[in-house]
Design a protein around this nucleic acid. Structure first.
Lengths: 203, 203
DNA sequence: TATCACCATTCCACTTGTGGCACGGTTACC
DNA sequence: GGTAACCGTGCCACAAGTGGAATGGTGATA
């Protein structure tokens, strides 16, 4: 995930200072990126301004040091939309934030574009499961020095199960999301319980 | 995640060539790292050899080009164990492979060391949930140009729910793992159904 | 016989990210 | 009065990763 794109997305939501952006990625933007350093945020912002993607206005802080509030320009807006609507290429690890970063920009897309992304992701992951799920994950010919075979093997098996479960749930939730988008159903309402009509209700 | 450490871990399992390692990270090692390039694998391996962490033996391939098979040295083994047993510092994103990379080395640790890692992870994530779960994730003062508010808001909400669910499940599965390790139960056996003893059984 | 996929290694220019520091200010609390 | 946490910007040396090309071979398929 390009920091630039994440920054553009964040700034479209809310023009911010470098400091605020860093804070955002440390707190609510945690899902999107780990360890954003101050230097990185400022340096990238400066580079983006040179390219004309963002501009800043100076915010006077009487007494304290002034802050630069960055806004996305027309050009930056275009760059962001181009990225969003560019064919989606799923990352190797399904846990990587790429998909969620794109879905986070859903408001800038049509339902069809969102569906296209979902289809690519779903197909990719389904293919991966078919390919790798039952391959043996064989280890050492002989265990290395100081290796607790019982613990190691059990943990490997546990890790494999957790991984498989997480992948299955990932796929299932995306399929459900896709269905709801397709059927025009609300995305977040819990599925209504099946209504049982008694004889009395029917009357 | 340092590539070096991952490489050391993989080589402890099975001495390999650079090509094999790259393949491994493209297939079964997918969970640990995305996009390992050839150049990176070879370059890192060379650097590690210079530092004395690995050595290679040349494997003759009559007719074809010879392959270098890398083995972990005593020193490399020590480096790996040092990393494994060093205090665990959870990454920002709980989906990052750090925890699973460590647990993958469980065979080189004692149960107590594994438990220590689990405790740190569980406590960190529980604290994060307490901190961020109910904070508002407010957006634009006014939506940017071409923004579909209905779709955007619904997707944001969906994303938030999915994220919260994934985090909850992550924590729950680690708590269960911890309990089993503590009680000496098998890690992967499904919980036995509660046995209902009837009057007749009792006799 | 051409083409493709695979095996195997290496180099290189380039972009990104890391970790630490320096500067300078405010507000809150003990 | 001290000190800690927060706000704010910026520089720098260095480490790490990217993307592509070059080289040279095998085996299978069309």
């Amino acid at each position: 995930m390009k920091l630039e794109i994440l920054l553009l997305g964040a700034l479209l939501n809310r023009p911010s200072t470098g400091y605020e952006l860093k804070k955002f990625f440390d707190t609510h933007g945690r899902f999107a990126r780990s360890n954003t350093t101050m230097s990185q945020a400022y340096r990238t912002l400066a580079a983006m301004e040179k390219r004309g993607w963002v501009e800043h206005t100076i915010e006077e802080r009487p007494g304290a040091s002034n802050a630069k509030r960055y806004h996305v320009t027309e050009e930056g807006h275009t760059v962001f939309i181009d990225w969003l609507t560019r064919p989606y290429n799923p990352p190797t690890r399904f846990q990587d934030p790429d998909l969620y970063a794109r879905l986070g920009g859903a408001g800038f897309m049509t339902v069809e574009q969102v569906l296209a992304i979902l289809d690519v992701e779903i197909n990719t992951r389904v293919a991966e499961v078919a390919r790798y799920r039952h391959r043996d994950r064989s280890r050492h010919d002989e265990p290395p020095r100081g290796y607790d075979v019982a613990l190691g093997n059990q943990m490997d098996e546990w890790l494999h199960r957790r991984g498989a479960e997480a992948m299955d749930r990932h796929i299932a939730s995306l399929i459900e999301l896709r269905r709801r988008l397709l059927d025009g159903e609300p995305l977040n309402q819990d599925a209504p319980p099946t209504i049982v009509r008694t004889e009395e209700d029917a009357r």
